[in-house]
Design a protein around this nucleic acid. Structure first.
Length: 157
DNA sequence: GCCAACGTTGGC
DNA sequence: GCCAACGTTGGC
C-alpha cells in the first residue's frame, strides 16, 4: 500500500512544529471531530503529514511530519480534568483516537494558505476549500509535490 | 429524525 | 477580536 499524505492543523500557541522538533515525537491527541477521527484511523506508519499552523499570520504549512504509530485510544477522553474530556466516552469502546507523529523536516519557507489558494494547481486541495474546518485533511500526491515545489521555490534551496 | 440553538474553528 | 461556517446537541 502506497504511502498516503495528510495535512494536520495546530495552533502554534498550543503546539507548534518547533515544539514537535523539540519533543522528537508527540501524541496527536484532542481530535474531537468524527470526520477527523476517521481519517486518523486510516493513517498508516510512514504516511507523511503537512504540519499546518492555524490562527497565525499567515496561516500555512510550516513543516513535514511522519506517522510513527497508527490510531489507538486517546486517553484524554477519560481524563476528567482534561480540556478534551468526553463524559460520554466509554472505556470499553473508546470514541476518540490519536496517532503518534515525529518531525521529518521544516519547509525551507512557509507555504501560506493564501499562496495555496492562488495556485490553480491546488484548486481542489481540501485546505483551500471554503469552510474547511476539519483539523485532519487528505492531500493528494500531486498536491503534496506542488506544495514542496512552492516551498523550495521560495526558500531558494 | 428534524431542526433551532449553541459551541467551536479559524480566516480575516 | 469579530463573526461566518459548520458540527453537535437536545427538545419535540
Amino acid at each position: 500500500m502506497a504511502r498516503k499524505y495528510w495535512l494536520m492543523k495546530s495552533e502554534p500557541d498550543t503546539y507548534s512544529f518547533q515544539d514537535l522538533e523539540r519533543d522528537g515525537r508527540t501524541h496527536w491527541d484532542g481530535v474531537r471531530n468524527y470526520v477527523a477521527r476517521n481519517r486518523l484511523r486510516e493513517m498508516k506508519e510512514g504516511d507523511r503529514v503537512f504540519f499546518y499552523h492555524s490562527r497565525q499570520d499567515p496561516p500555512g504549512i510550516v513543516g513535514i511530519a511522519e506517522v510513527v504509530r497508527t490510531a489507538y485510544p486517546d486517553p484524554s477522553q477519560f481524563d476528567e480534568v482534561s480540556l478534551y474530556h468526553d463524559a460520554k466516552a466509554d472505556p470499553e469502546d473508546p470514541r476518540w483516537v490519536m496517532v503518534d507523529v515525529a518531525p521529518v523536516e521544516a519547509l525551507p519557507a512557509v507555504v501560506s494558505l493564501h499562496e495555496m489558494k492562488d495556485n490553480p494547481k491546488l484548486d481542489d486541495m481540501a485546505v483551500t476549500q471554503r469552510g474547511q474546518r476539519v483539523s485532519v485533511l487528505p492531500v493528494t500526491r500531486d498536491e503534496w509535490d506542488e506544495v514542496l515545489r512552492m516551498a523550495k521555490g521560495k526558500g531558494g534551496a
